[in-house]
Every structure is written in structure tokens, then in C-alpha cells.
Amino acid sequence: MEKFTTHTGVGVPLRRSNVDTDQIIPAVYLKRVTRTGFEDALFAAWRGDPSFVLNQEAYSNGSVLVAGPDFGTGSSREHAVWALKDYGFRVVLASRFADIFRGNSGKQGLVAGVVAQEDIELLWKILETKPGTEVTVDLEARTVHADDVTVPFQIDDYTRWRLMEGLDDIGLTLQNEADITAFEATREAWRPKTLPAKHLPSVPVEPARPVS
């Protein structure tokens, strides 16, 4: 996972509250077997509307999403974060996030920053009056800067540390790899191994056929 300290990119005002994960990425896209390439699925139901914010030239390459309260509610699908990241977003700002979405974001390297609703309104105003305005998110200082405005955002210390170190869950666990190796040396011989494979005698399996 990439380390995150500051990021500057076009801000996208999403004037909607309660954006649930089904709106972020509809269920039909969950059948895919890939982990990337979900950019087309992001907000799929809204993308058909030409007036939707991401369909406007000035915002289309945005990377900082400024959304209404209760972002990311609904099903726990990790795909919601993948879709946002694949589209190019590095930061989502809102006054409230669903817990699971915020947890998933931290694990996948997306900054979910909590900004007071009046500051969100301020940012929306700037981004709407001057479409294409760049926003700078400073994770170290926990501030958002746009035009001549600087507002604070909140993120818990642990998630911030992980994002700044670029550590995903696996990276974190692997910091203790010596412990894992030491534990493995103590495992008893009776514990099973799948390899080399042991089998019963192989027997042909007859395909069943439809009954007419």
C-alpha cells in the first residue's frame, strides 16, 4: 500500500446524504473476479444522468470526494472502496461515515476524513462556484485546504499512522513475521498437511444426466 502524507487533486462536491454502498457500487458488479477495474461501476446508477457531478468535465478527474453525512452505509462490501480507488479517489470527506465503510477504507488506503458539516458546506460552495478547484489534504496536519480556506478533519490516530506508513492488514501482521515463524516451529507433527496429497483409491465419477 502506498504511503500517504499529503494529496492535492480536484475536489468533487457530492451533495447527497446517506450514500449507501449499493449506490457506490450496485450488486450486479460483485460477480466479477477481479480486484481492480471497478471504475465504471462507481455510482453506476447515477452515471447515466448527464448532470451528475462526475459527468461534468471540470470534475471528471476528481480525486477528493466531498460528500454528505452518513456516507457508506448498507452492506459491508469491500468493493465500494475498490470502486472509489479505481476511479481515482484518494480521499472522501463527510461529516459522518458508516463504521464498516470507514474501517474498510483505512485498510485499503483510502482516507476517510470526518469534517464538520458546516465546513463541508463551505467546501461545496467553493467547489461549485469554481469547478475544478484543487483541494489539498494534509494527513500529517489533518487539514483540508481549498482556495483560501483551511479546515480541520478528524481521523483516528491508528488509521492515520497506518495510512502514513502505507501498511495494510497483511503488512501489519508481517511486521510480526518472526513470531509466526517461531510459532510454526512449535507445531506438533500430528497436525495435518494438505501436501503431499493423500487420497483414497481414485474412482471414476459418472456424470449424472438429465432425466427425460
Binding site: T173, L174, E177, I180
Partner: peptide, 9 residues
């Protein structure tokens, strides 16, 4: 996580 580390937090 399990594939990579054989552990789980």
C-alpha cells in the same frame, strides 16, 4: 490475509 500469513488478527 490467511493466504499471505497463515494467521488472523
Amino acid at each position: 490475509h490467511v493466504l499471505a500469513t497463515q494467521t488472523l488478527p
